[in-house]
Amino acid sequence: MFVQLYRIHLNRRSRTLVTVISCLALFAAVFLGAWLYGENGEITNLQLRKLPPSWEQPFGTDWLGRDMFARTLKGLRISLMIGLSAATASAIIALILGLAAATLGKAVDTAVTWLIDVAIATPHLILLILIAFACGGGAKGVIIAVAASHWPVLTRIIRAEVLQLRSSAFIHLSAKLGRGPLWIAWHHMLPHLLPQFVIGLLLMFPHAILHAAALTFLGFGMSPHTPAIGVLLAESMRYLSMGLWWLAVAPGLTLIISVQAFDILGNSLRVLLDPKTCRE
């Protein structure tokens, strides 16, 4: 019923806008919540150990009596921050390499294409582990590893997009109408590239967040003192057999929800930014 109402009263564009706003609100809530809880998640209270979810502790408590809801929020914040910085760094690498490949001539193009192939051909997780390990683990290691392994797809998209733009009739025509290369880059190329870039960046976030969590879970990432989602999940493994299911389920679900939210956000923006679909 609710879904039906949603369909009838809002057209596609408004629906997309509502989706975008709810995703953004979700992230704002995570950051705000983590900030409001302050030190709460760190406080041990041995009287409240191993409590299942209830109204007071919606995600239950762990073996030291710490509130899992507060810990999950903080963990999510750390994971999101790491994911965001890694994805942004990766997108910037992709932008530079993609532009270089498409504009600096054949030799550079061959080199970049070769790099892309190498990076894609290497098993993803192994590459991540190797880089994180080489950088000494910790938040820095995770960010570098994720940034260094996620650029190839976006690089390819940007390279292809620029190559296609450079051969399109309206770009050549603009030059014949007396427009300079900088003007063309700013007015013709950028509006085409920017949506691709932003959407590529947004769709990279979920990967980055998941891989950051995976690295941490495997023990190559953050130390147990920083309660990232990966750390929480790794710790919960030891207590699962004791029936403390909420330790893994609650943080895991929130991670999936936030990752999904980024995915939806990216796809919705794509609909809004394309002139062919933005008026549907």
Binding site: R13, S14, R279
Partner: peptide, 11 residues
């Protein structure tokens, strides 16, 4: 076709 003009109104 139903289109949206820039003000989100349906046309």
């Amino acid at each position: 076709f139903s289109y949206n003009s820039s003000q989100l109104s349906k046309k």
